[in-house]
Nucleic acid binder design. Structure first.
Lengths: 139, 139
DNA sequence: CATTTATTTGCAACCCGGTTGCGCTTTTTG
DNA sequence: CAAAAAGCGCAACCGGGTTGCAAATAAATG
């Protein structure tokens, strides 16, 4: 019963997600990891759990705004924790960074969406911005 | 031997792609369509052609800067013609718009990339921006 | 408590977009 | 014209994602 455990279970209850053993495990992994994870990442890390269970766990987290999804061009959908500095759950602006060397994907801190030229009568509801380059670790 | 045919074959030769019947067909379709197409779109439209052939045709086009790829979140990779107003082939800024109603994906005209806050020691080599909303047609 | 009911999990199978090996056909080259 | 190269179609495969179903676990009810 570590502090980590408590933090994890508190976070789950906060979002009205029943804290099963599986979910605690997955959320703990997400917290420790700090970057976005794919379903495959989870499968590899938590090899006791079944793929479908992990899949449904992530879906549950997503529905309850614990995580949001990112398409970073890797071909795998990634999931990242929603934090205070990430505005993905509130408005619909998604800013992410993918390192082309290590493959890690990070949420970028909340920031103003720059204005863009758009054809007439196009209306924007959502913005997804992925920066690709080299992260601090790999630089 | 229409004007269209000539235009298509000229475009192919311009990029040093041998103008086979198949490639002419595909390029013609891309030109007429005006928006980005997926492999499945092509399969449906040109049902005489085999999937693998279409796939390899698109790859060839991509390698020779006739088209560029877009991940618009539809789960299918899309291909769009490189034009003068699209800067995807020259620099590495990709601006696209996906209509959430009709599913069409369009290249947005070349424009200045806005400055963004980035963590220390992160360097950006490529930018991919996808706006999602409703297009003029659907509005 | 004991039992009914709902939720969660694991397994297997499936779907679909993308990709490859290979043999046949067509085109290019010498 | 023959040899070599390029293009094409078919079938099969791969991997990420998804679903149906039955067993296990947890919650609710009498």
């Amino acid at each position: 019963m570590t502090g980590m455990q408590n933090k994890v279970e508190k976070k789950l209850k906060e979002k009205a997600v029943r804290p099963t053993a599986m979910r605690t495990l997955v959320l703990k992994f997400l917290l420790e990891r700090g970057s976005a994870v794919s379903l495959t990442d989870l499968e590899d890390a938590l090899d006791t759990a079944d793929k479908s269970t992990l899949f449904r766990t992530l879906k549950t987290f997503e529905q309850n705004d614990l995580v949001h999804t990112i398409e970073d061009g890797s071909g795998k959908l990634k999931y990242a924790l929603c934090t205070e500095t990430c505005n993905s759950d509130t408005d619909h602006h998604h800013f992410h960074f993918t390192c082309q060397k290590c493959g890690e994907t990070y949420c970028l801190p909340k920031q103003q969406m720059p204005k863009l030229d758009l054809p007439l009568n196009f209306s924007v509801l959502e913005v997804s911005l992925v920066l690709k380059g080299i992260c601090a670790e790999c630089n």
